[in-house]
Design a protein around this nucleic acid. Sequence first.
DNA 1: TCTCCGGGAGAACAGTTGTTAACTGCATGG
DNA 2: CCATGCAGTTAACAACTGTTCTCCCGGAGA
Lengths: 208, 208
Amino acid sequence: MSHTLGVRQAQKQRTRQALLDAALALLEEQSLSSLGLREVTRAVGVAPTAFYRHFHSTADLGVALVEEALGSLHPMIRTTVSPEQHSDERIARAVELIAGHVAAHPAHVRFIARERHGGVQPVREAIRDQLGRFAEEVRDELAGDPGAAGWDDGDLLMLAGLYVDQMLSTASLFLEALNAPERERRRVAELAARRLRLISIGRGHWLD
Amino acid sequence: MSHTLGVRQAQKQRTRQALLDAALALLEEQSLSSLGLREVTRAVGVAPTAFYRHFHSTADLGVALVEEALGSLHPMIRTTVSPEQHSDERIARAVELIAGHVAAHPAHVRFIARERHGGVQPVREAIRDQLGRFAEEVRDELAGDPGAAGWDDGDLLMLAGLYVDQMLSTASLFLEALNAPERERRRVAELAARRLRLISIGRGHWLD
DNA sequence: TCTCCGGGAGAACAGTTGTTAACTGCATGG
DNA sequence: CCATGCAGTTAACAACTGTTCTCCCGGAGA
């Protein structure tokens, strides 16, 4: 798309990314509201003042991290919910997909779970907005399902929100089980599948 | 039960409670991992070193707060889930009960939601333990329901966990809507009721 | 080739933090 | 009534924090 950046801007974006990466690593053992600006720059190996060239504050950095963690996830959502297979297979695939994502980006998942109700307002709002968009996308996808005939918009959004909450909940469970024996991860996958199955059943009889 | 405490121990417990209260107030705008010991003692009007007479660290204080916020909630759980009325009435009553609790103890609810996935391990574990106990209690209550015939223990615990998660989720929503117009709170109550109804339906057809 | 711009470095600032030590006053148990 | 134990105080410690100002240097545009 855009032609190659100049050496100048490329270097800038590189340190910016280094700051984001270092912050994300530090946030595995603390919350954003206790993350110090100097702490981050020290981890990158850069002067404290350099931080201001990229972010106004650590809260600002947090908002950028939300974008990084959730922004690129939208395409995945749509394909997951789309009703192209039988319910049980779709559930299994969704749980697998979540497990894979947690294994691939554990720090991102931890960050979102931690800061969703965390102590930094702008970050909470950024996460709430992203999750809200997720819910709307899921609703749009659900609306295309033939089983959704007769559902009003409120019901669809309720169900979509339930799915999004469930996604985060199981992601968090997978995160806790990351360094546990594989048997534990299987247990989590089984539990998540059962929950989704129950929701699926409730969905099927909603209009009775 | 226990005869009246001496003047000495009574005063100790009073400052201890003052520390807990001050910390809880401070935690409305930050997370536990950034809460300073001096910050708390300053708010109480007591010397920093006095803190050590009551807690080893702020993490320790956090665990005590978990006890305070969740420990006295167990009786409420059992009565809420008990199947003494029709489903819709029970749902309405449960949602009302949650709304009332959030309105009465908003700081406690915020603390639990924030620190459940927060940056302080011992506190996370304390919350996980308490919520686990909740789930077990709900399961025991569900097991007494005639509709639970044929459910194995794993299914019951799955459903119980779903209810507990749902409880926290709606509590968090009520918290966000605390200073919003009452219409917003009604909307949250309506949403929570719909979610519970869907789960209830799925529960009714689980064994098909 | 020269000038300019901006990412980054360096030093210094006033405050803050957790933790230690030695103390004071007073309720308590013998 | 007196000695003891303990909640709370005072003072000091080195280490750390966010922020400002001044400077440097090398890529970019003319």
